[in-house]
Amino acid sequence: VDNKFNKEQQNAFYEILHLPNLNEEQRNAFIQSLKDDPSQSANLLAEAKKLNDAQA
Rank of each mutant, 00 (worst) to 15 (best):
Q26M: 06
K35I: 06
Q40P: 02
L17D: 05
D37Q: 11
N6P: 13
A42T: 10
Q55M: 12
H18S: 14
F30W: 02
L17Q: 11
K49Y: 07
L17N: 09
L51C: 11
L22E: 00
N52F: 01
A42P: 08
Q9C: 10
L17T: 09
I16V: 06
Y14V: 09
N23C: 14
A48S: 09
A56L: 09
L45D: 00
L19Q: 04
S33A: 08
P20Q: 10
A42G: 07
R27G: 02
N21S: 11
Y14C: 14
L17V: 09
D2A: 01
F5K: 10
D36Q: 10
N3I: 04
L45Q: 04
N3S: 05
Q32H: 14
Y14W: 11
L22P: 00
N23T: 11
I16D: 00
K50W: 14
Q55S: 15
R27Y: 02
Q55T: 08
L22K: 00
N11T: 06
K35Y: 03
F13M: 15
N6W: 02
K50G: 10
A54N: 13
A46W: 06
K35E: 07
R27H: 04
N6L: 05
D53M: 11
A48P: 00
A54R: 13
L45R: 08
N11R: 13
K35V: 11
E15M: 06
V1Q: 07
P38E: 04
L45S: 05
N28G: 05
D53P: 01
A54I: 12
N43L: 02
K50S: 12
Q32F: 05
A56D: 08
D36N: 06
A42Y: 09
K4M: 15
A48R: 00
R27I: 07
F5G: 11
N43Q: 05
Q26V: 07
A46T: 09
L22Y: 00
A46E: 10
L51G: 02
D37K: 08
L51H: 06
I31E: 04
D36M: 07
S41I: 12
K49V: 13
L22V: 05
Q32K: 05
K7G: 13
K7M: 03
E15G: 05
L44F: 07
K7E: 10
Q10C: 15
L44N: 02
N43R: 05
E47S: 07
Q10E: 13
N43A: 06
L51Y: 06
L51I: 11
N3G: 09
N6V: 04
Y14A: 09
Q9H: 03
V1W: 01
L34A: 12
A56I: 14
P38F: 04
N3V: 08
Q32I: 13
I16S: 01
Q40C: 07
D37E: 09
K49D: 03
N28S: 14
R27A: 07
L51P: 00
I16F: 02
K4F: 13
A48M: 01
N21V: 04
N21T: 07
A12E: 03
D2Y: 00
P38C: 03
S33C: 12
Q9K: 00
N11D: 14
F30D: 00
N23D: 05
N23F: 10
A56V: 11
E47T: 10
D37T: 10
A42F: 10
E47M: 05
P38S: 05
K4D: 15
P38A: 06
K50M: 11
L17I: 09
L19R: 00
D2E: 05
L17M: 13
E47C: 14
V1R: 04
N28C: 14
D53C: 12
N11Y: 14
K4P: 08
L19W: 02
D2T: 01
A48C: 04
N28L: 14
K49W: 07
R27P: 00
L45P: 00
L19H: 03
N21C: 14
Q9E: 08
A48L: 01
Y14M: 14
K4S: 09
I31K: 01
L51K: 08
A42W: 08
Q40Y: 10
D36T: 11
N11P: 01
P38W: 03
A12R: 03
R27Q: 06
Q9I: 08
A56R: 08
A12K: 02
N23W: 13
L17K: 08
F30C: 06
N23E: 07
L22C: 00
A48N: 00
H18Q: 08
L44E: 02
D36H: 06
L34E: 00
F13G: 03
S39E: 14
E8K: 02
A48Y: 02
L45F: 04
E15K: 05
E24V: 12
L34S: 01
A54C: 14
V1K: 11
Q40E: 10
K35W: 14
V1I: 12
K50V: 14
N52I: 02
L19E: 01
F30L: 14
E25Q: 12
Q55G: 10
N23P: 06
S33L: 04
E24R: 04
E24P: 07
A29W: 12
Q55N: 12
L51W: 08
D2F: 01
A29N: 13
Q32C: 15
N21H: 05
F13E: 03
P20W: 02
Q26W: 08
S39R: 11
H18L: 12
K4T: 10
I31S: 02
Q55I: 12
E24C: 14
I31T: 12
L22Q: 00
D36R: 13
D2Q: 01
N3E: 11
V1C: 11
H18A: 14
E25P: 08
D37G: 08
N28E: 15
N23Y: 03
E24F: 07
N28Q: 12
I31A: 15
E15S: 05
E15Y: 07
N52P: 01
E47L: 08
K7Q: 12
Q26E: 05
A12P: 01
Q10K: 12
A56T: 14
Q32M: 10
Q40I: 10
Q40N: 07
E8R: 01
L45H: 02
L34W: 06
D36I: 11
N3Y: 00
N52S: 06
E25A: 15
V1S: 12
A46F: 10
F30S: 03
I31G: 04
N52T: 03
K49T: 11
E8Q: 05
R27M: 08
S39D: 13
L17G: 07
E47K: 10
L44K: 06
L51M: 09
A48G: 02
F30G: 00
F13D: 01
Q32R: 07
Q26Y: 04
A12H: 09
F13T: 04
F30M: 11
S39I: 10
N28I: 15
S33Y: 02
L19F: 03
S41C: 13
A12G: 03
S41H: 15
S39C: 10
D2G: 02
P20R: 07
I31P: 00
D37W: 07
N52M: 03
A56Y: 04
I16M: 09
F13N: 03
L44Y: 07
P20T: 09
Q10F: 12
D53G: 11
A48H: 00
L34V: 11
I16Q: 00
I31M: 09
S41D: 03
P38K: 05
Q9V: 12
S39V: 08
Q26D: 05
N52Y: 01
N11E: 15
A46G: 08
Y14H: 15
A48Q: 00
S33N: 12
N3H: 05
K50H: 10
E15W: 09
L44H: 07
F13Q: 05
F5V: 15
Q55C: 15
N11W: 09
A42M: 11
D2C: 04
Y14G: 06
N43Y: 13
E15D: 05
A54V: 11
N23A: 02
A29Q: 09
F13P: 01
N6D: 14
L44T: 07
N3P: 15
N52H: 03
F30I: 04
E24Q: 12
A46N: 12
N11M: 15
A12N: 07
E15N: 04
N23I: 11
N43V: 11
K7P: 15
E8I: 02
